[in-house]
């Protein structure tokens, strides 16, 4: 285990975060959720951001995903700074670059699995076919089911299919196994790991569960809104070997 050298990765960095911070205003009080974050996400990397509840990891993910804006610092995607983008540019960024997977799946309850994926594929020109995307997560047979008719693990796989279908450069997963039991969680992690290894998809996964950090190429640990540790896993675990 060694501390990653930033100079080594800078050349193939997909995202660079420099001094990024986010302050929430609650009435009169200002709450800093993320302070002076610096890091890079390299193309093809599987990064796990680890931290307890309230450590600022979701905030960081939102800044990287362009669903929120930093109050200070920079979030670079290539040469573009997300902090300086208009709403329209951010929308375009989310549309073409990022795929999201959420803890509670965030499927639209009135749409079937197929249609939930279709919601994403309709947005981009070179998207996967929804059937194909659902087959990738092993749900080809359940395409016509509504979210309420699927288990938690199945719903999360639909959400992954929805994210993958857009062929994003970067997949952001916010506690994707947080609501699942171990077998289901392994299943979901395996799909993510496969996408990373076979298709070279860059993945940033946030979790409070240290057990999951084992599958990452690199782990960034947050404590109280600050980066506390960055480490490289020389031998990442296979998803099937994750246990807690």
């Amino acid at each position: 285990m060694a501390v990653a050298s930033d100079s080594r990765v800078a050349s193939r960095a997909l995202m660079r975060i420099e001094g990024a911070g986010r302050v929430f205003r609650m009435g009169e009080v200002e709450v800093p959720a993320l302070v002076d974050a610096d890091m890079s996400i390299n193309a093809g990397e599987f990064v796990v951001i680890l931290g307890p509840s309230g450590s600022g990891k979701s905030t960081l993910l939102n800044l990287i995903g362009g669903t929120d804006r930093a109050t200070c610092g920079h979030v670079w995607h290539g040469d573009s700074d997300l902090a300086g983008m208009s709403d329209g540019e951010l929308t375009e960024y989310r549309r073409t670059v990022v795929g999201f997977v959420f803890q509670f799946y965030n499927l639209i309850p009135t749409l079937t699995a197929y249609e939930n994926v279709q919601v994403a594929t309709e947005l981009v020109a070179n998207a996967l076919n929804p059937t194909e995307a659902l087959a990738m997560v092993g749900l080809g047979e359940r395409a016509d089911h509504f979210p309420a008719q699927l288990s938690g693990g199945e719903q999360q796989r639909v959400a992954i299919a929805r994210a993958l279908a857009k062929r994003p450069a970067l997949l952001l997963a916010d506690e994707p196994t947080g609501a699942l039991d171990l077998p289901m969680a392994r299943n979901v992690l395996a799909i993510l790991q496969r996408s990373n290894r076979e298709q070279g998809l860059t993945i940033v996964l946030i979790t409070h569960n240290p057990a999951i950090a084992g599958i990452a190429d690199r782990v960034i640990r947050l404590v109280s809104g600050r980066v506390a540790e960055k480490r490289v896993n020389e031998k990442p675990l296979a998803a099937a070997d994750v246990a807690w």
Binding site: G65, T67, T91, R94, V119, A120, L123, K166
Partner: peptide, 9 residues
């Protein structure tokens, strides 16, 4: 929020 995150304007 999800649709916006997916890239809907």
């Amino acid at each position: 929020g999800t649709l916006k995150a997916l890239g809907y304007s």
